[in-house]
């Protein structure tokens, strides 16, 4: 583990130890809180240093690691919805235009990439115009989909 990571880990361990220690110390008044906090921090740091395998599997380690991943995921969901191409027909068209020119540029380096048009279906183009639907129309679409699923099973989506 790098020294930087180790330092962050030690800080986290000390903070938790301090919290636990001060919580117990609080039962004995303000002085007890300070003494308990200091003792708890030292104890937690010792565990981290001399029994790292215990820390690696600890609740604290899991909490810190998972909290970081959860934060990254929340930001990613926000960003994906913010950087949407489905806001309007012009956003959608602009993205299609951008993809078309990028594929053209890339295929000059690698012929197998091909053009965007070669990847489009022959008889279908998605247009967002007139696709906004009120609640009644939305329910009709759901019903239509529901009938399909009852006859054919679930719609399978991969990502």
């Amino acid at each position: 583990m790098s020294k930087k990571k180790e330092a962050i880990q030690d800080q986290a361990v000390a903070a938790l130890g301090g919290l636990v220690g001060s919580g117990l110390g609080a039962l004995a008044g303000p002085e007890g809180m300070a003494a308990g906090g200091a003792a708890g921090s030292v104890g937690a740091l010792l565990v981290s240093k001399y029994a790292p395998e215990y820390f690696d599997n600890s609740v604290l380690r899991r909490y810190l690691s998972n909290r970081k991943v959860a934060g990254i995921l929340k930001a990613k969901i926000e960003a994906d919805l913010k950087n949407s191409f489905l806001g309007s027909q012009s956003d959608f068209d602009l993205a299609m235009k951008s993809m078309r020119s990028l594929l053209q540029a890339a295929s000059s380096q690698d012929r197998s990439i091909g053009s965007l048009d070669s990847r489009l279906p022959r008889n279908f183009r998605w247009s967002l115009v007139n696709m906004d639907c009120d609640e009644e129309a939305f329910q009709q679409h759901l019903s239509h989909m529901g009938t399909y699923c009852q006859q054919n099973g679930p719609v399978r989506i991969g990502c």
Binding site: D80, L81, N83, F85, L86, F92, L120, F124, W126
Partner: peptide, 8 residues
């Protein structure tokens, strides 16, 4: 086959 772009 490509239906359309969703997000960036």
């Amino acid at each position: 086959r490509l239906i359309g772009p969703l997000c960036g």
